[in-house]
Amino acid sequence: MNSLIDIKALEIGYRLSKSKTVSLLPPVNLQLKRAAITGLIGVNGSGKSTLLRTLAGVLIPLSGEMLFDNFNASHLKLKDRARLISVVLTETIDDPYLKVIDVVAMGRYPYTGFLGKLDKADFEICYHAMESTGIMQLSQRRLNQLSDGEKQKVMIAKALAQDTPLILLDEPAAYLDYPSKIELMLLLKKLTIEQHKTILISSHDLEMLLRTVDDLWLIGRDLPAIQGIPEQLVIDGLISQYFGTDAIFQESGHLSNLGESDSSEGFYVAGDGFRAHWVRHALIRTGRLISYKLSSKNQIIIEGSNFEYRMNGDVVFKTSIFEELLIKLSENEKLFNT
């Protein structure tokens, strides 16, 4: 079996009274891939959180089933569910005296008795969880001394200590700055590979999800929930359709047109991949075209930190400064246009 969870005709929403229900989405049929990161995305109010909370068992589905390893999990006891699914939320905890280790240790509560006493093995698991998330050195720090990114790592360590095959994350990166977001996603990816965790993460940040997730769930108002690998959904135009706008890919739309541009006006960029990527980025941003044909009229050759511009094979100028490159290109174009 390649999927951990099979969602079949699951109806999610709210129960107003015994007979009255409000369904948020058409019945959902999705499979959650095992040992992979799956992103959940959709416009605001489409029911991302409701779907996640239904999977987490906080909300009861209106109908349908969730098969957890072929076992219907929609009516599991809360305590048993806590050993299958752990959650990480947007909200961070702000308590002046809670230490990192205290919070991580809470992950062991589903396994402890009435008094919640932890034994040595429990603490071993907590230390391992903190090691995996790279917060071992923070273990005695108080929570409110940490950055938001560190706090979310603590919550992920808590989820690891909970020792569940599935981790659900509801907008965990909403308050994080860009580097922390990327770090978070890389950490999650590592967990799928090294610890075979199955991870479902909802986010507003389409770009972040496209860059990192293995599989993407797409939901929208009055549209059936669908899934696929991110690139497939982009190419099929489904993401634009579900978000109801083409604007999302305007910038990257240029990027996807690059290969098709065989215009002789396009720029051929050669050299080290990283710099070449950013040179193309700058060219596109300033409204130029890219060409992948060696015979192209305009060529930018990157050598070390130098950019060399050649026109019809002749070197026109050399510079190591991005801004100068763009300015000189414009001057050159003006010269030839007049």
Binding site: V58, K79, D80, A82, V87, L89, I93, M106, Y109, P110
Partner: peptide
């Protein structure tokens, strides 16, 4: 102790 984490985390931990 679980409630220190808030209602959602507490119920996620089986409370």
């Amino acid at each position: 102790n679980l409630l220190l984490l808030g209602e959602k985390y507490a119920s996620g931990l089986g409370l």
